[in-house]
Design a binder for these strands. Sequence first.
DNA 1: CGCTAAATATACTCACCAGTATAGTCTATA
DNA 2: TATAGACTATACTGGTGAGTATATTTAGCG
Lengths: 226, 226
Amino acid sequence: MAGRSTRDNAVRKPSSASAATPEATALWSPVNSRVRDRERKRDAVIQTAARAFRARGYHNTSLDDIAAELNVTKPTVYHYVQNKEQLLFECFRAGLRQIMEAFDEVGSTKLSARERLGIVMARYAEAITSDFGWCMVQAENQDLSPAMSRKVKSLKSEIDQGLRGLIREGARDGSLRKFDEKMAAFAIAGALNWIAHWYRSDEALTAAEIAERFIELFSIGLERKA
Amino acid sequence: MAGRSTRDNAVRKPSSASAATPEATALWSPVNSRVRDRERKRDAVIQTAARAFRARGYHNTSLDDIAAELNVTKPTVYHYVQNKEQLLFECFRAGLRQIMEAFDEVGSTKLSARERLGIVMARYAEAITSDFGWCMVQAENQDLSPAMSRKVKSLKSEIDQGLRGLIREGARDGSLRKFDEKMAAFAIAGALNWIAHWYRSDEALTAAEIAERFIELFSIGLERKA
DNA sequence: CGCTAAATATACTCACCAGTATAGTCTATA
DNA sequence: TATAGACTATACTGGTGAGTATATTTAGCG
């Protein structure tokens, strides 16, 4: 659908742009517009799968369902992904990427660990409320082959280590008090991941507002100051 | 297995206990020992299902699997539960019960809301680390028929309301500061529920120890006191 | 002992669905 | 305009697993 309409006007640029460097020419050559098109379609497949998985669950969504939502048939879906499992994995990875980006961005700043943790939590919440976020949380190991499961676990562990790292740094730079990193990271990740279970798009609060409250809660706690 | 061995010695008590009241006699009559036996077996089915679901996931566990683990065949399982969905629901309910009991116990004490919240959280953590706890967390709506889904939702909502209630009371009795109840309840429930995703029985910390740390975290937070 | 009901098993049905073999169609390009 | 290959569809296979029809055994009970 989106692919069909974008393809036509992208096709014949190269003939007029042959003065550019070979690399640039290659970028806009028809064959590469096809490649980009393919990627765009692939993304659409993954996005549609994510929405379907979130709506009905992974096991209750057949590839025929997904194909139907894309107005194509099953073999077309298989033309873009190897199998259903990989589809879930791609959804998982898309959600993960958003969170990893937050760590990357924040890693190159001079902010205190506490401030960085807050930023990561906000981006985390944003990611979790997306269709991909749902897949990230739900992509439980039992749905995946051992090989995929290992991959997922190691990627999830990166997030966990990122959180623990920030908490540890907070103890060093004095912005956070000393506390069992592992438990703190699990508590924060749990609270954030759980958003995927209750959040609906008609929710009164946005992801940013939810994150704001969570940050306050994990910062100063619930106990009344004596 | 368990059913087979317990049946034999439970069967012929009534003959020697016929001096008791009719009610007591009835309690120990063969027909009632059968009833109790049936319930015990049913519990065994549910317990086994919970363990299997936790180990391999709901959709990757067939009723043949469960039957095999009980050394019986599928129709026997169907003799104790109506269908697979109900099996999951019973597991869910077993986990839920433990948490509801915590609320009940704590409701009749004179403790501060903060103290009561701590006790509930500890029992909650305990429940979540059990096989039933896993089912409770995972029994997502997409696995259940609309009718069951509604039931599950309303039961889950009771827990949520219980948590919110304690937080609200804390603001009244001065043991907790004022804070968005809904978000606080979601954060706490999320952190606790998430335990089911990472906890393994060989975990260094017990459920009680995890709860202890979570309680501290949610009480005073991570921020270093200025 | 013989009847009744509970408990369990054998041996199916039926639907669903992941994945594929095969054959068309369209498009860029030589 | 002929060809290669990218894309998509039709129509299948094969396996799995929920649920059941039916028979058989076991245990209580008059």
